[in-house]
């Protein structure tokens, strides 16, 4: 009898957990390794790259906290706090606009991004990248994740994502999505930028969690956005400037 109750409880809990698993908030830490990015600049000599790497050995990474609110159909990715601040919280700064909204049912996205001195709104269908599924598993934030790889043809970056099969929502951080589970870790260009989940909280989302700000800015399609970015990168490289000071890596 006891055993029966236990099994019943167990079943209830599993169904409960299954029902909950498609709605919640993932918090991420986004680390940018600047000396690695500097080393990608085609116009710098090896000497200059090494000099930057040796000099900034201790202060190489800059950290940001991000969050992804998701349910089975939608997701919204933005900063975890309304302002950027130092680790001890003693100094704060303004965050550049960044709200990335996805609707998987309607195959639609709205990206609000401040870059190149303006706020842009990219509105288009999802245009999920072609993911290659690998044979590696690892744990991220307590979840066993599987590896998937793709490429950013515009920024010429290798992208590695680790998605959790236990959270069956195709959401993810930054502009990446479309895998059989939530992406808990994203590695841009072999460790130049690493976005790693620090926690997953399952809860009912409030309307505020998925609320977009007032859409004010220049509207773009994906094609126009890609053209803008690739033109900026090409121009910056010609002008011997690091393009990623002014656009998100």
């Amino acid at each position: 009898m006891n055993r029966f109750i236990l099994i019943l409880c167990g079943m209830l809990m599993t169904t409960l957990s299954l029902a909950q698993q498609t709605e919640g908030v993932v918090t991420y830490q986004r680390k940018t390794y600047w000396s690695k990015i500097i080393a990608r600049m085609t116009f710098l000599s090896q000497e200059q790259k090494d000099r930057a790497a040796q000099t900034w050995k201790n202060d190489d990474e800059s950290k940001e906290k991000m969050k992804l609110s998701f349910n089975a159909n939608e997701s919204l990715y933005t900063y975890a706090s309304e302002q950027g601040e130092t680790e001890d919280g003693q100094y704060s700064w303004r965050n550049a606009d960044l709200v990335l909204y996805r609707n998987f049912d309607k195959d639609k996205k709205i990206d609000v991004m401040e870059m190149l001195g303006k706020t842009y709104i990219v509105e288009d269908s999802l245009h999920t990248p072609t993911w290659k599924i690998g044979n590696q598993i690892k744990e991220v934030a307590g979840y066993i994740c599987m590896r998937a790889d793709t490429e950013d043809p515009i920024k010429k970056q290798k992208i590695t994502a680790w998605f959790a099969q236990d959270i069956p929502v195709p959401a993810g951080p930054e502009r990446y999505s479309g895998l059989p589970g939530v992406i808990l870790e994203l590695n841009l260009n072999e460790g130049d930028v690493i976005i790693e989940a620090t926690g997953v909280a399952f809860r009912k989302l409030t309307p505020d969690d998925l609320k977009l700000p007032k859409l004010k800015g220049k509207k773009l399609t994906d094609t126009a956005y890609d053209a803008l970015i690739s033109q900026h990168i090409a121009e910056s490289m010609t002008a011997h400037r690091n393009p990623f000071w002014t656009i998100r890596y």
Partner: peptide, 20 residues
């Protein structure tokens, strides 16, 4: 139950479709 099932292209193991 609830295992992830994926269909990949044999050419480059890119994800074609998935389900549970």
């Amino acid at each position: 139950a609830s295992s992830t099932v994926m269909l990949l292209s044999p050419r480059d193991s890119s994800l074609v479709n998935f389900g549970r």
